[in-house]
Write a protein that binds this DNA or RNA. Structure first.
Length: 269
DNA sequence: AAGAATGATTGACC
DNA sequence: GGTCAATCATTCTT
């Protein structure tokens, strides 16, 4: 009974099911509540409840019509009983015919409701599958964070939330982005070197401005710069040495490619 | 139209 | 539970 299960899972089954309502509640609870993707999801839920409402009102209408028709037929039979004898069995037969007819109509209603739910579902899933590239600003913000935390590009939950807010995307999208970025950067550091230098320069410039404002007479010209490549956390301090920074600074302006600092085997954590 | 880039999903791992 | 790695599916670039 796929259709029934589906309706139950979506909470479309009505109270007329009697004992089934408990099963409906259980199924709804078991289905869980994926509370991510709030905007599209709430839209989905709204449409679903709309379908459910239509189903219930239609069902009620049929129920009522069935009752009305039954009493109408009963009246007719009663009238006919004056002219000819009508057995209780015949009445029973008529009533059961009517009920059968109406229950088949209700079945059709259930089926079409189910179809509507399925269509809604597939549309929802399609919408989720369809992706849009993030805005340029969003990518910029994410890249800025990534390259300025290259030694440990793992934003905390709070940092993720902040980035998500700044980029107007969800936290899981931020997680996805960092997951993709880490793996793709690691796979081909050379390809990303230009980008890395760009963002390193960007943060260097802003840091330099701050530094210049603070210490005008100082000779220090090495603002905080990111590492050349992210490493295992164990190596972080070792590779974040001043020597490394200087190398990067030089490379930044000469366009050189600093050697990647990866361990041959391990994962990044 | 083909290939590259990119966001999302999935399964395995710790 | 978060991450990695492979992969899918769509979008962008050439």
């Amino acid at each position: 009974m796929r259709l029934d299960n589906m309706l139950l899972a979506e909470g479309v089954a009505g109270p007329e099911k009697g004992g089934g309502s408990a099963a409906a509640a259980a199924a709804a609870a078991a289905a869980g509540s994926p509370t991510d993707n709030s905007i599209e999801h709430s839209d989905y839920r709204a449409k679903l409840s709309q379908i459910r409402q239509i189903y219930h009102t239609e069902l009620e209408k049929y129920e009522q019509a069935c009752n009305e028709f039954t009493t109408h037929v009963m009246n007719l039979l009663r009238e006919q009983s004056r002219t000819r004898p009508i057995s209780p069995k015949e009445i029973e037969r008529m009533v059961s015919i009517i009920h059968r007819k109406f229950s088949s109509i209700q079945m059709q209603l259930k089926q079409s409701t189910c179809e509507a739910v399925m269509i809604l579902r597939s549309r929802f899933l399609d919408a989720r599958r369809k992706r849009r590239n993030f805005s340029k600003q969003a990518t910029e913000i994410l890249n800025e964070y990534f390259y300025s935390h290259l030694s440990n590009p793992y934003p905390s939950e709070e940092a993720k939330e902040e980035l998500a807010k700044k980029c107007s995307i969800t936290v899981s999208q931020v997680s996805n982005w960092f997951g993709n970025k880490r793996i793709r950067y690691k796979k081909n550091i050379g390809k990303f070197q230009e980008e890395a230098n760009l963002y390193a320069a960007k943060t260097a410039v802003t840091a330099a401005h701050a530094a210049a404002a603070a210490v005008q007479n100082s000779q220090t010209n090495s603002p905080t710069t990111p590492n050349s490549g992210f490493q295992m956390k164990d190596e972080e301090f070792q590779l974040d040495s001043a020597e490394n920074k200087n190398t990067l600074l030089t490379n930044m302006f000469t366009g050189g490619y600093p050697a990647p600092c990866y361990q041959s085997d391990g994962r990044i954590q």
